[in-house]
Amino acid sequence: MINTLPEFVIELRQTVKSYGEGEAETFALCGVDLQIAQGEFVAIMGPSGSGKSTAMNIIGCLDTPSSGQYLFQGVDIGTLSRDQRALLRRHYIGFIFQGFNLLGKTSAIENVELPLLYRGFPAHERHAKAMEALRSVGLEHVAHHTPGELSGGQQQRVAIARAIVTDPLVLLADEPTGNLDTAKSIEVMELLQSFNREKGITIIMVTHEHDMAAYAKRTIHFRDGKIDTLPETKALP
């Protein structure tokens, strides 16, 4: 599906997202232009209703623009069918959510194996890759514990292991520290930062916390469906 290596892994071109018709039409995105290069770590911030979550849904191929373009590795997502977009998500994008989204009665390693199951990996290979992913987040010792037996920080690290087990090109993190205390938040952010630096995974993170955004290489602010005209904030070195 993806055969070229363009300058940007993510590119929004005059992207518009609207809902409703006529006088009831509302705009979540109003002609957004955004470019993200391979290997960047970008934080997206903005008040409620600013369009940041809509932009993330489009970038994650969970939604499509009303007009304009979204290019993923040079491929115009608007030309893909629903099934093709699902395949793109499955093979190229990892997701981390604020609420962890783990299966409650399933062990940590089985939760991490789930994306590999969808991709048809044989059981022994799924197990080996899932264990390696848990090892990379420091949780191989709780591989057979259920989420209820883990702390919030451990659950989020299991969710990160699940997101990176398929070696995604892009990792989307939606408020990944929103349910964690400060110490656990720092652990998670240092982990994400290490995956960006050491594995070269492109990370796009929505957050409302400025101290968490500082871990990114670049911060983009959304307001009223547009990217704020204020200069983009760069993280501390």
Rank of each mutant, 00 (worst) to 15 (best):
L150Y: 14
H127S: 07
G153K: 01
P122L: 00
L117D: 01
F95L: 10
R126S: 10
D211R: 13
E190K: 11
F222G: 10
I160Q: 02
L87I: 09
L192H: 07
N111Q: 04
H210D: 08
V158Q: 05
L5I: 13
L80A: 14
E198G: 00
L29T: 11
I10S: 01
G39C: 06
R119P: 01
G39D: 01
Y118T: 12
E209L: 02
A161S: 08
E125T: 06
M56P: 05
S66L: 13
I203E: 12
L71A: 08
D174I: 15
A123V: 07
E21K: 15
L117R: 06
V42Y: 00
I96Y: 03
Q38M: 09
G200A: 11
D63G: 02
Y92I: 02
I227C: 14
Y70W: 03
K52L: 01
A86L: 04
F72R: 15
V112F: 09
G120E: 15
G20D: 15
M1P: 05
T233F: 10
N196Q: 10
V9F: 02
A163C: 09
S18Q: 07
T182E: 11
F100N: 14
L71D: 07
E25P: 06
I58M: 06
P115E: 09
I164N: 11
M131L: 14
Q35F: 06
V42N: 01
R157N: 00
E7Q: 09
E21R: 13
I10T: 04
G104Y: 06
I77D: 08
H208L: 06
E190A: 12
D224C: 05
T219Q: 12
A214M: 12
R126L: 14
G94R: 00
F195H: 01
H208P: 05
H208N: 02
K17G: 07
A24G: 05
Q38W: 06
Q155G: 07
A24M: 13
P231V: 03
Q154G: 03
G31H: 09
G46H: 08
L169Q: 13
A214T: 10
V142L: 10
P176A: 13
L139E: 05
K217W: 01
A28Q: 02
R82G: 06
L102D: 09
H144L: 11
G46Y: 04
E198T: 01
L169D: 12
L150A: 05
L103E: 04
V42Q: 02
I204D: 13
A159R: 08
T54F: 04
L117Q: 03
H141E: 09
A55Q: 00
T219K: 14
S81D: 02
E232G: 02
I93R: 10
K217C: 02
A86E: 03
L103I: 11
D33H: 14
G74H: 01
I36S: 00
G153E: 00
V42P: 01
E190C: 10
P237S: 15
L80R: 10
T177P: 00
S66D: 14
K199R: 12
H145Q: 12
V137E: 01
E21I: 12
